[in-house]
Design a protein around this nucleic acid. Structure first.
Lengths: 235, 235
DNA sequence: TAGTTACTGTGAATTATGTAACGTTGTGAA
DNA sequence: TTCACAACGTTACATAATTCACAGTAACTA
């Protein structure tokens, strides 16, 4: 009897865990954790050892309660007196958002945007290694750009498979974006960061994050006006 | 009697409208409306005249219900039989997210990223005019880049005021970002699109949209792994 | 003209997300 | 040693966002 109850309980737990995907952390939390880590590293270089939730919150532009909740999600606990140990927290966040052996990344489209992105990752983020860059412009390929050699896109599938690349960055014009995405997915990519201003169609199991600059600027323009209006009213 | 009821009704409406900021549309909706408009224009060039919510939804990667809701927010109504008139819908969306006289935009930091952003806006979006570009690198200033002349940042305040610029794009390294933001706000900008990987501190009434490439890539890497895990389980 | 169909518009239900509140805990001071 | 305090961890609550579901409607058919 007791055993059977225990069995049922176990089953329930298992179902919950598997069905809902472990204790899956939301995309928003993952984004904030990435932000916290950067802030923490920056604090560390300034000689800080510990940090409180409200300090991290103010640096990150979020509420202290949210910081505590996000940190709860990674399973780390601070001390009420000293707050969080920066080293330990960075370590814990890394254990969640980094792959232990690191992940390999490919970038397609070495125009201005592609080069800017390559610059962003020079040296930083040791767990995310840009292993290949591609372009279809003969003038840009087989040259070394920003420390990375650019290959012709015809070699994309081959190199992605050989280098075990699982993440792709799409910096090509919108006309070419869907084709590139298809090739990336076929070759084995499971995540795509898309800068092209069209939504990509990908099979289930592939995660796409869109960075839509036009959309963002229109949003800014809209709220630049709207919040200005609000201000006027309250004056 | 009848008059007084009417008066009360009017008062209520006014209170509701002013107090909650018109019928303020959420940032997410504004973003999607901007997306819809682009999709609609693209459909139009392919000769389409009308479109249904499910078509727009599938192109935009959202649900049909959400499309209808967003469109409801702009106050446009389609026909059950023909769907939405593309021309009319584009017109209505524009009436919400565009300023009638257009808005002027400044871009600070003419590195690879800045040039990529300038390219994005070559010719498009007639209501968002890039009127000035700035850089602190002597080699880049007083030259014409991508059709825009780059000024030294020392002239930022003066030009922003003269050109009545209300939106700024920050494409400078993170060390300089907060300074640039301060200058933009002081000179009159009410909205900032920030590519620097740190949160900007701005006074209330200024809207900031962050585009954090590092964060986005870490998110993609995380979910590339997690969704892959999920797939394995269900196999 | 009546019936059928497929879509819209929208209130209600549901789900995500963020905030507030509060008991708990470790530290330093008296 | 005990008290007061400040910040954490967690739960309960509130708000925002999304989906559901269905009434209403315009066209098309016969």
């Amino acid at each position: 009897m007791v055993l059977s109850i225990a069995a049922v309980k176990n089953l329930e737990l298992t179902l919950e865990d598997v069905g809902k995907g472990e204790n899956m952390i939301s995309a928003k939390s993952i984004g904030r954790l990435s932000l916290y880590r950067r802030l923490l590293i920056s604090l560390k270089t300034r000689g800080e050892e510990n940090v409180h939730s409200h300090k991290l919150a103010s640096l990150g532009g979020v509420s202290p309660a949210q910081v505590r909740r996000d940190i709860m999600a990674v399973g780390y606990s601070g001390s009420p007196a000293r707050g969080y140990s920066i080293d330990e927290l960075v370590e814990c966040i890394g254990r969640i958002i980094d792959h232990p052996e690191g992940q390999n990344v490919a970038l397609v489209g070495v125009g201005h945007l592609g080069r800017a992105v390559l610059n962003y990752f020079r040296g930083r983020r040791p767990k995310l290694r840009v292993r290949a860059a591609f372009d279809n412009d003969i003038n840009k390929t087989n040259r070394v750009l920003h420390g990375y050699r650019a290959h012709p896109v015809t070699q994309l599938a081959e190199i992605i498979k050989r280098e075990k690349i699982t993440v792709g960055i799409v910096c090509v014009p919108k006309e070419a974006a869907q084709d590139v995405a298809n090739n990336l997915v076929d070759a084995g990519c499971r995540g795509i960061l898309n800068f092209a201003p069209i939504p990509l169609r990908v099979p289930p199991g592939v995660y796409v994050e869109d960075i839509d600059i036009t959309m963002s600027l229109e949003k800014v323009a809209y709220f630049a006006r709207e919040t200005a209006k609000e201000e006027e009213k309250t004056e």
